[in-house]
């Protein structure tokens, strides 16, 4: 049984530690906020200019002047702060944000990431992705292990335009949890019922398997 989007988010939430400042990208990373364990205090950063992002507003709390980086209406929390986009990216480039969680189209065994452009299709722009991956102390990627046609997205070299070089530290896919090391993808955990051979088959880049690989515990 491979992990669904919510299970990937739930597994990544285990990486979030008390007291962290965290930036969540659009898609599966946004779901991580739903699974942060009770008793763990984290501050979510929205790169348009907010620290301490609260839940979506109720209908009567909706404020057009309060949105997140995905342009969704949001709320603040006690202790939130608001600042310019220049200050926001100062926080990011200055390595004050502890953890960045984002999606990817491809990751290479060296930790390169491609997630902003597919040549020949509409170019939407990189937004804050390049700034985030260039400076984050710790980057965890949430992604599908293979494309719809079955081809691997965990590669020796990225084929799509690069967002950043040698930056990804950990990857949680529908099939497994991996760490990026000097020698390649090191397999840490596998999804329940997914074999090491299945993961090997779905991984084009170098996969390092040492000893027994435990199943993901959710």
């Amino acid at each position: 049984m491979s992990l669904d989007k919510n299970q990937i988010a739930k597994r990544i939430a285990q990486e979030v530690k008390n007291g962290m400042y965290v930036n969540l990208g659009i898609g599966i990373p946004t779901l991580v906020a739903n699974y942060i364990p009770h008793g763990i205090e984290v501050v979510l950063q929205s790169e348009n200019g907010l620290l301490g992002m609260g839940p979506f507003p109720t209908e009567d709390q909706v404020d057009a002047d309060l949105i997140n980086a995905g342009k969704q209406t949001i709320t603040t929390l006690p202790g939130s702060s608001i600042f310019s986009s220049a200050d926001s990216f100062g926080m990011i480039r200055g390595e004050h944000v502890d953890l960045t969680i984002l999606g990817a189209m491809e990751v290479s065994e060296k930790g390169d990431i491609a997630n902003w452009k597919i040549p020949g299709k509409m170019v939407k722009g990189m937004g804050g992705a390049m700034d985030l991956v260039a400076s984050a102390k710790n980057i965890i990627v949430a992604m599908q292990h293979t494309a719809r046609d079955g081809s691997s997205k965990l590669l020796k070299e990225c084929t799509l335009p690069i967002t950043g070089l040698k930056c990804v530290k950990k990857i949680v896919t529908d099939l497994c949890v991996m760490e990026v090391t000097d020698k390649g993808f090191k397999l840490l955990e596998r999804a329940p019922g997914v074999s090491v051979e299945d993961i090997q088959k779905a991984t084009e880049g170098t996969l390092i398997v040492e000893g027994d690989i435990p199943e993901v515990q959710l």
Binding site: E47, S84, S85, A86, S88, F89, G90, I92, R93, D112, M126, G127, G128, A129, M130, D131, A134, S135, P161, I162, T163, G164, L165
Partner: peptide, 29 residues
């Protein structure tokens, strides 16, 4: 990159003709 855009504008207003940023290194940017 969004932070580069923000900083280029900030630099324009602050009299700083250029600066170095890690964002976009190794990419087509």
């Amino acid at each position: 990159p969004q932070g580069t855009l923000a900083e280029r504008i900030r630099a324009g207003g602050a009299g700083i003709p250029a600066f170095f940023t890690p964002a976009g290194y190794g990419t087509e940017v």
